[in-house]
Simulated assay, not measured.
Amino acid sequence: MKSMNNRWISLALCSALAGVVLSGCTAAVVGGAAAGGGLVMADRRSPQTQYADQAIELQADSRVSEALNKQGHYNVISYYRKVLLTGEVATAEDRQKAQAAVAGVPEVVGVVNELAVMPDSALSQRSSDTYVTSKVKTNLLNANGVPANSIKVVTERGTVYLMGRLTRRETELATEVARTTSGVERVVRVVDFISEQAALHPNDPYGTNATAAPVSSSGVTVPDASAVQSQATSAATNAATNAANNAANSAVNTANGSVSNASSTANSAISNANSSVNNTVNNAVNNAVVTSPVTQPTIVQQPAAQPIQVQTLPPVQ
């Protein structure tokens, strides 16, 4: 029994030690900005890009820590090899040091420096940021038309950062979800815009693959209804005219009765032909619509004391 107790005590100590070692500025949940994401199948990033982002975060965190002599509160988030820096540092010089340290990490394509020169945020603020991130992620998952697993969500002092490669429609929907979440004070979009084709076919973003049909801006290629109606009307009218002429000729040739009977037969044929034209046109128009309309989420914005500011950061050079 004593040996078993010692084993449990040893395991507890190891776990506590591991928690201390891993509680750096980026890894801490309470001590750092809350960032949603991970290796998930629905992520648009390739496995190589996901692992590269993880490696960048580890190296960048170590270099920033060394550059700042382990001072300040900072967070390093990499997405598509673009690094977002958030948190607080003591001086403007420290802010530049942190950015230079991250820029020197291999494979980093750009740095978005959102570090603030101010005292470190309180633990209560960081806990609140973690809670806000969880609410935004949940709302994104519940929203229609939003690729939640392809969006990195980071919250720092009430400001929500949305990171990813999204279409403009997806970006607007995600922004609306974030800005209507309680506790959000500002939304900053660190987004690279992509086409609908690139969103649906990441391996064929320009539609050059001959085996896959290109995707239009609405997600599918839809025939023009007016053109279809015009073609259908023309074809049906020609068919009706031919049918009427044949019926009239037949009535004249075979009629032994009066001319009025022949005329009645022709009029009846023309009436039937006109009815056929209308039915043909209606069927053609109805069959021309090959897709269902996209359902946009209905979001009811709660009244707020101040409007939520939305900012889009320029692409990183």
Rank of each mutant, 00 (worst) to 15 (best):
L140K: 06
L141K: 06
L141V: 08
N142K: 15
N142H: 14
A143P: 07
A143T: 09
A143D: 02
N144E: 14
N144Q: 15
G145H: 01
G145E: 02
G145K: 03
V146P: 07
V146T: 02
P147F: 01
P147E: 01
A148K: 03
N149D: 15
N149Y: 12
S150F: 06
S150C: 04
S150W: 08
S150R: 03
I151F: 01
K152Q: 14
K152P: 07
K152I: 11
V154L: 13
T155M: 09
E156A: 13
E156S: 14
E156V: 05
R157T: 13
G158P: 05
T159K: 13
T159A: 11
T159F: 02
V160T: 15
V160E: 11
V160W: 08
Y161A: 08
Y161C: 02
Y161V: 05
Y161F: 15
L162P: 14
L162Y: 08
L162H: 11
L162T: 11
G164K: 04
R165Q: 15
R165E: 15
R165T: 05
L166Q: 02
L166N: 01
T167G: 02
T167D: 05
R168V: 12
R168H: 12
R168A: 14
R169Y: 00
R169M: 12
T171A: 11
T171P: 10
E172Y: 06
E172T: 10
E172G: 09
L173P: 06
L173R: 10
L173K: 01
A174F: 01
A174P: 11
T175E: 12
T175V: 09
T175N: 09
E176T: 11
E176L: 05
V177E: 07
V177S: 01
